[in-house]
Design a protein around this nucleic acid. Structure first.
Length: 192
DNA sequence: GGTAGGATGGGCT
DNA sequence: GCCCATCCTACCC
């Protein structure tokens, strides 16, 4: 018989109303939740908020273009883009429809589908899903998921099996030049 | 322990 | 043509 972890049940899928809030609230609220893609799942332990106004690091700062269309669309959808020609980054869209804002998922603590996740990484160096590029590779997320509704379907965010109080650390965001001093990176304490 | 540079392609000016 | 919301390897203390 298959491993018991494969049938582990999680809590309910986060509803669209979860995402239809301010981007910072969503970025903080996602910590401790479960990102699930098929049989692979991990606890979200690091996020960054990219704001619709006053944030020159956000892709949406250039305005509405074919690329940024999803960020301006309805909340609870995935915004996935290719960075440096080889890595994908996964964001979840926040704010009401028409207002830009999204949350970059930077790290997971894997809890299910570990072999599946390892299998996607050529030669593992570093943590399995720590870092936005590693996270998408381990979870099998590509640009094919751009625009996907994460409140239904194969790629979703769920409540954990049992919630526990979370302590959140706040720092500046990683790897950006513009608006680099804004305190918009959120980490689950002990999640690094 | 640390840092520097290359891989590699799409989006925007 | 330049700029990346990165990662990995090589090399140097």
């Amino acid at each position: 018989m298959m491993a018991g972890t494969a049938t582990m049940r999680f809590g309910p899928i986060l509803p669209r109303s979860f995402y239809e809030r301010g981007t910072v609230e969503v970025a903080r609220g996602l910590l401790g939740k479960l990102l699930v893609h098929g049989g692979a799942a991990g606890i979200i332990v690091e996020t960054e908020a990219y704001l619709g106004s006053g944030d020159r690091a956000a892709h949406s700062a250039v305005g509405l273009t074919p690329r940024t269309r999803v960020i301006f669309g309805p909340p609870g959808h995935a915004y996935v883009y290719l960075i440096y020609g080889m890595y994908h980054c996964l964001n979840l869209v926040a704010e009401p429809d028409g207002t830009p804002g999204c949350v970059l998922l930077r790290a997971l603590h894997p809890v299910s589908g570990l072999e599946e996740m390892r299998g996607r990484r050529a030669r593992s160096a570093g943590d399995l899903a720590s870092g936005p590029g590693r996270l998408t590779r381990a979870m099998g997320i590509t640009r094919a998921h751009n625009g996907a509704d994460v409140t239904r379907g194969r790629l979703v965010v769920r409540e954990p099996a049992q919630a526990h109080p979370v302590e959140i650390a706040v720092t500046a965001r990683i790897g950006i030049r513009r608006s680099a001093d804004l305190p918009l990176r959120f980490l689950l304490a002990g999640g690094r």
